[in-house]
Simulated scan of single mutants.
Amino acid sequence: MMDQWQKLKQDMKQAAKDLGIDAIGVASPDPFVTLKERLIRHRELGRESGFEPTDDLDRRTDPSLLFDRPQSIIAIAVAYSSKLENPPKSTEGARRGIFSRASWGTDYHVVLRDRMSKLEEWLRERVPDLRAESMVDTGELSDRAVAERAGIGFSAKNSFIINPELGTWIYLGEMITNLPLPPDEPITEQCGECTKCLDACPTGALVGPGELNAQQCVSFLSQTKTTLSDHHMRKIGNRLYGCDTCQIVCPINRGKNWTHHEDMRPDPELVKPLLIPLLSLSNKEFKAQYGHMSGSWRGKKPIQRNAVIALGNFKDESAVPALIKVLHDDPREVLRATAAWALGRIGTEEAVQALHGALEREKDEEAIAYIEQALDEASGKEGK
């Protein structure tokens, strides 16, 4: 006769789709010893992003420090879209930026909390004395380490979890429980000799298979609030939030696009927005338009800075008046410095005049340095 916990697990897997969950698995609650060793090395090499949930590596790798007498961890995956239907075109005079796919549609924290809540309710109906704690991205455990152990997918060279059916286009969450559910078997790694993700990384942040230097990752850089180097700004391109390059080039992701979740369908105009209007958004307008997206979590400053960078990379002369307004009027030094860089990239006579005018008025040392560099860049164009 089938063990009651084995049966509960089997029933849970069959119910998953009705709960809005695309993949579900069970992991043991044992400490993540190998992960801890990797995190220690990661820290010693200075590769942390600074966005980690805690500095305490024990709490990030030992479920028993987060939950009294854990018996199992349930891992879930929810698939999201990777393609836009009828995407708006970025054209001269109407240039657009792009949010990474993980930020399309409703904030995935909201989506996963909804799915976790439904799953917990389903379990409680069957086990009234259930104890459970759900985590989504901001929890202390590594979503990817739990998903790997639970058989959701394998840890790929691009450091994402790849589900053989769904690819990397999945949100991950987990629930620590007091239920002695039998664990699933991990999936064998399937990257083979492929190194497309490592070769395509814009900044070389993927320093080896599954080894990410977050300090160099475009996704991390796009979420910072400081000024960026010339090298990094050129690499950002027109990305407003995040970077999908290492996922786009992955052969396993080819042709995979998931649109079956109504609450997660992206609005093409929001996820690929016009750049110039972004520069003048108030906090209230930004929250109203983008507050439901996970890409808004750092506020409007990084998005606006990245919009300025994108306009500089497009070298679109029609953007010069808007960039001059930022250079002259924006109270934030980072935005003024970045606008100077963008105007230097465009290099028209109007841009150069504005840079000279700004140099006379600017008080911030970093902004002055960027204005001077921009003038050097523009004069280099004139000499060609």
Rank of each mutant, 00 (worst) to 15 (best):
Val78Ala: 07
Glu362Thr: 03
Val26Ser: 05
Gln223Pro: 03
Gln304Leu: 11
Ile252Asn: 10
Leu206Val: 09
Glu365Asp: 13
Gly192Pro: 07
Asp55Ile: 01
Thr34Met: 05
Gln190Tyr: 00
Pro209Trp: 02
Leu66Glu: 09
Ile24Met: 03
Pro53Tyr: 00
Lys272Gly: 07
Phe99Asn: 04
Gln304Thr: 11
Ile161Asp: 02
Pro209Thr: 00
Arg96Cys: 05
Ile309Trp: 14
Gly93Val: 13
Thr91Phe: 07
Gly167Glu: 08
Ala16His: 02
Gly50Ala: 08
Ser155Val: 04
Ile309Asp: 12
Gly93Gln: 10
Glu92Tyr: 08
Tyr241Pro: 01
Lys381Ala: 06
Pro266Asn: 14
Met175Ile: 08
Trp104Glu: 02
Ile40His: 03
Arg239Tyr: 04
Ser103His: 14
Arg95Ser: 09
Pro53Ile: 00
Phe314Tyr: 15
Cys201Lys: 12
Pro266Trp: 14
Thr177Gly: 05
Pro186His: 05
Ala77Val: 02
Thr224Leu: 12
Ala79Gln: 09
Leu375Val: 13
Cys243His: 03
Gln223Tyr: 12
Ser64Phe: 07
Ala351Arg: 05
Asp143Phe: 07
Leu66Ala: 04
Trp5Gln: 00
Arg101Cys: 11
Ala200Lys: 03
Arg69Lys: 15
Tyr290Gly: 11
Lys17Met: 01
Leu141Ser: 09
Pro331Tyr: 10
Glu44Asn: 10
Ala307Trp: 11
His109Cys: 00
Leu65Met: 08
Asn253Gln: 10
Val218Pro: 07
Ile73Trp: 03
His231Cys: 02
Pro251Met: 05
Ala351Pro: 01
Glu189Ile: 06
Glu185His: 06
Cys197Gly: 09
Ser90Thr: 09
Asn313Glu: 06
Met175Cys: 08
Gly153Val: 00
Cys197Arg: 06
Gln71Ala: 15
Asp62Glu: 15
Asp58Tyr: 00
Tyr241Trp: 15
Arg298Lys: 13
Gln6Tyr: 05
Arg305Lys: 15
Cys246Leu: 06
Ser222Val: 10
Pro202Asp: 15
Cys194Leu: 04
Ser229Val: 05
Ser117Arg: 13
Met1Gln: 06
Asn178Gly: 07
Gln190Ser: 12
Pro53Asp: 01
Cys217Ser: 07
Arg101Asn: 11
Lys315Asn: 13
Val26His: 06
Leu228Phe: 12
Ala339Pro: 04
Phe154Asp: 01
Tyr241Asn: 12
Val26Trp: 06
Gln71Asp: 13
Ala214Val: 06
Ala132Val: 12
Asp263Asn: 12
Arg38Trp: 11
Ser159Ile: 01
Lys287Glu: 15
Cys197Lys: 04
